[in-house]
């Protein structure tokens, strides 16, 4: 990192990067869910939910979160705007 970058704080110090990466890797390790498995889970989830309701598949996010001592699987699934509502709005 150059002195100029350092002065202007353009690059994060490496310990901060290490901290973020460590937190993420431990969240996945502890849950026994690798990022790849999580992707597969997301695809299954999209397929299952799509059978019942129209969703905006491109906006689906499935993530692991960690509170103090609980691991949480969080799925954010935006619904596709319904036809009825679209008509009302239009």
């Amino acid at each position: 990192m150059s002195l100029r970058d350092r002065l202007f704080g353009r690059e994060r110090r490496s310990a901060q990067t290490a901290r973020k990466r460590l937190q993420l890797v431990l969240i996945h390790d502890r849950a026994g869910l690798s990022p790849g498995t999580l992707d597969a889970l997301k695809d299954d989830l999209v397929a299952a939910i799509s059978r019942h309701v129209d969703i905006d598949a491109s906006g689906v996010h499935v993530t692991l979160r960690s509170d103090r001592d609980k691991q949480r699987l969080v799925a954010d699934i935006p619904l596709a705007p319904s036809r009825e509502r679209r008509r009302e709005l239009g």
Binding site: S14, A15, Q16, L22
Partner: peptide, 17 residues
């Protein structure tokens, strides 16, 4: 020295996780 300049995980970072 590395912990102080932010280039090594400190004890707080490690104990935290």
């Amino acid at each position: 020295e590395m912990v102080k300049r932010g280039d090594m995980l400190g004890e707080d970072d490690i104990l935290d996780v």
